[in-house]
Simulated scan of single mutants.
Amino acid sequence: MRIPFIKMHGLGNDFIVLDGREDALPALNAATVAELADRRTGIGCDQLIVLEPSHAADFRMRIFNSDGGEVEACGNAARAVAIYHGTQASLETDGGVISLSPQDGGATIDMGQPRFEWDKIPLAYAMDTLTMPVGWDGLGDPAAVNVGNPHVIFFVEDCDAVALEKVGPQIETDPLFPERVNVNVATIESRETIRLRVWERGVGLTRACGTGACATAVAAMRRGLVDRETTVALPGGPLTIHWDDDDRIQMTGPASESYRGTFEWDEFA
């Protein structure tokens, strides 16, 4: 059975998109996702995206990391899906319903309201999520934000100097985070600019993370470090994050289609 796919990316964070809204796809499992995501023997991607019908929104997006695990939200994928869909739409994710507004070369995504309660991150036990009294290998006093998936954010003098490939997996799998966590290290450049690197759970170091940019910007805004609209500069490029008066996060940035193809399902099942 040959399955069509669309290869897309947002600032270098790349996706395989499978459209199952009209014709149902075979059942996915973690092994199949990991095989497809393999950059040597599969198509290769950071995340595999599956579009499905929805009763709660115009359609649904399921998100699988390259290790095969399913996650709740992905801002870069939402922008890619927005330009693929082509018109404004509501999108159901496991992290909630968000809205898509495609633009030339990208999209604005209403990512919804951030959550700060310790049990909504979630954490293993109660603590202040604005300045958490914890640390790992020189990184301390982080903030935690859930923007559809969990993030912990460390504000440091130079995020490029942090050995994120070493400390990232330690923090991701720490028992403090029962659902694991995305790890962000950020440097405040000005009232309007943040420099950011992200260790993404189930993926590793990534060129861009839309939810990480949202979580980091909101954490910086809560601490009074930046204005309510700021540019987050990731290794793959910049995103504009606006936290509006209705407590909703608006993320604007580019996305693009790389190519289309088909694959034989049975070769990866």
Rank of each mutant, 00 (worst) to 15 (best):
A213K: 05
E189I: 06
A215K: 07
G202A: 02
W243C: 03
V218M: 05
A215I: 10
G237R: 04
A208Y: 07
S256A: 14
E257N: 10
G210N: 04
G212N: 12
E257Q: 14
T230I: 05
M251H: 06
G261M: 11
L239N: 01
S258V: 15
A217Y: 06
T187R: 02
Y259L: 11
M221T: 06
I249F: 10
V203I: 08
T193M: 00
T252G: 04
D246N: 15
V232I: 10
V218Q: 03
G212R: 11
T206I: 10
L239M: 11
I249L: 10
A219N: 10
S190T: 05
R207L: 15
D247L: 07
M251I: 09
A186S: 08
P254N: 12
A255M: 09
C214F: 12
A219W: 12
P238H: 09
D227L: 09
D244L: 10
S258Y: 14
R207H: 14
V232F: 01
G212I: 13
A215T: 11
S256G: 15
E229S: 13
T211F: 12
G236L: 07
L196P: 00
R180N: 02
G204E: 08
G236Q: 06
L234C: 04
D246Q: 15
T216V: 06
G202Q: 00
V181S: 03
L239D: 02
T230S: 01
G261P: 09
R248T: 13
G202H: 03
P235D: 05
R201A: 01
S258A: 15
G253S: 05
V232A: 01
T193C: 02
P178R: 10
M251L: 13
R201Q: 05
T187L: 02
T252A: 09
V203D: 03
W199T: 04
R201V: 06
A219E: 11
L205Q: 14
A208W: 06
R223K: 15
W243G: 03
A219F: 12
L234T: 03
M221D: 07
I241W: 00
A233Y: 10
P238T: 07
T252D: 05
S190C: 05
S190G: 01
A219S: 14
L234A: 05
V203E: 02
V185N: 03
R180C: 02
R222G: 04
Y259E: 08
V185A: 01
V198R: 03
L225T: 06
C209A: 13
E200S: 11
D247E: 15
Y259A: 09
I241N: 01
T230N: 01
V185T: 07
V232R: 04
I249Y: 08
P178W: 12
I188T: 15
R222L: 08
D245Q: 14
V232N: 03
T211Y: 11
D245N: 13
